[in-house]
């Protein structure tokens, strides 16, 4: 109504691009990294790939938490609910005859289905209450699993359906599945954020009230993120099971998973997809180097988190981004502003 056709006609001639020139090389680079990682089982000892499985699992979880907190503003301390449920989903599916590696992918679907009714409950809470609420919900799921004797109850159970496989082959397959899950998680988040919904999510991240008054269904956008996050954490939980071959409710539903996710996201940079990658590398390095120092290791992690939160509120990637404009995953729109735009066009009636 208020926008004249003349203005619209002129707008049609203005090109809008999604990615910069450097993007092609970044894509090639990232593709190469994935190829090299995928080739690793042929050349590296299983001790190396075994450690990388843990890394990829944490990367998946942190990516999901980052999406949840960084874009939807949903600070959850209860994502271990889906790690645990994902692990037990693979176990249960395996009992029903589903190949565990396939089960890891199916765990994502199972967790999405469970997350939908859970979100109806959790979304009644806001802010701090949401955080505490999600933790309580995770505990409830743990208690439900403990009551199920077929799944090992309170003492946990082993996954036996993979024991027929050759050890080296099993380690390699586990590694590939973990890699696939992590790549899918990052790629999925990237495509989600690039989509129409991604634009809405970014606006919600910046100002919820304004997003609402711009027509964004904030609740729906948040729910989608919650479901995606549950799916990713579910598959990560599945990886946890196929890599350790046994599951215990206390470890699978441990709040430490959420603590790790938060640490990685905070150190790397909340609200940046690259943040989860950088944060995971830092976390993993610290873990590898200092894990033998017992409680000092935990004190160091805590100190790092405090330092990061106080002096690097944007995280490592956020800081790098602010200084160099670097980005691995281009999400921006760029308008090729024409010079002619300065000439005013009369507004027609």
């Amino acid at each position: 109504m208020a926008i004249g056709d003349a203005l619209l006609a002129r707008a049609r001639d203005i090109p809008v691009r999604r990615a910069g020139r450097s993007t092609r090389w970044t894509t090639v680079g990232l593709g190469l990294v994935v190829v090299v990682l995928a080739y690793l089982p042929y050349v590296a000892y299983t001790t190396v790939t075994d450690r990388l499985v843990d890394f990829l699992m944490l990367l998946t979880m942190a990516t999901m938490w980052n999406l949840l907190a960084g874009y939807a503003g949903l600070v959850s301390v209860g994502q271990q609910a889906y790690v645990g449920l994902g692990a037990y989903a693979v176990l249960q599916l395996s009992d029903w005859g589903v190949q565990p590696y396939l089960g890891v992918l199916l765990a994502a679907a199972v967790c999405t289905v469970i997350a939908l009714p859970t979100s109806l409950l959790a979304f009644r809470l806001r802010g701090d209450y949401f955080a505490v609420g999600t933790w309580v919900i995770a505990e409830v799921y743990r208690l439900l699993i403990v009551r199920d004797g077929d799944l090992g109850g309170g003492s946990g159970r082993s996954l036996t359906t993979l024991s027929g496989l050759d050890h080296t082959l099993r380690e390699a397959l586990t590694y590939w599945v973990a890699l696939a899950v992590a790549v899918l998680a990052l790629l999925g988040c990237y495509l989600l954020l690039r989509s129409r919904l991604g634009l809405a999510l970014t606006s919600v991240r910046d100002n919820e009230t304004a997003a609402r008054s711009a027509g964004v269904d904030v609740r729906r956008a948040k729910r989608v993120v919650y479901l995606v996050s549950a799916a990713g954490c579910g598959s990560a939980g599945g990886v946890l099971l196929v890599s350790s071959l046994n599951v215990h409710p206390d470890t699978a539903f441990s709040v430490q998973w959420s603590a790790y996710m938060i640490f990685i996201a905070v150190i790397g940079g909340i609200g940046y997809l690259e943040g989860a990658i950088v944060g995971s590398i830092v976390f993993f390095a610290v873990q590898e180097i200092f894990a033998n120092y017992g409680s000092w290791y935990l004190i160091l992690l805590g100190a790092l988190a405090v330092i990061g939160a106080v002096w690097l509120p944007r995280g490592l990637w956020g800081e790098l981004r602010a200084r160099t404009g670097a980005q691995l995953f281009p999400l921006r729109y760029r308008v090729d502003t024409p010079v002619t735009a300065a000439t005013p066009v009369p507004v027609e009636r």
């Binding site: 606006s203 910046d206 100002n207 304004a210 921006r332 729109y333």
Partner: peptide, 11 residues
């Protein structure tokens, strides 16, 4: 109440 980390166009 702009979306501060988005561009003017994206807003």
């Amino acid at each position: 109440r702009p979306f501060e980390n988005m561009t003017v166009f994206e807003n």
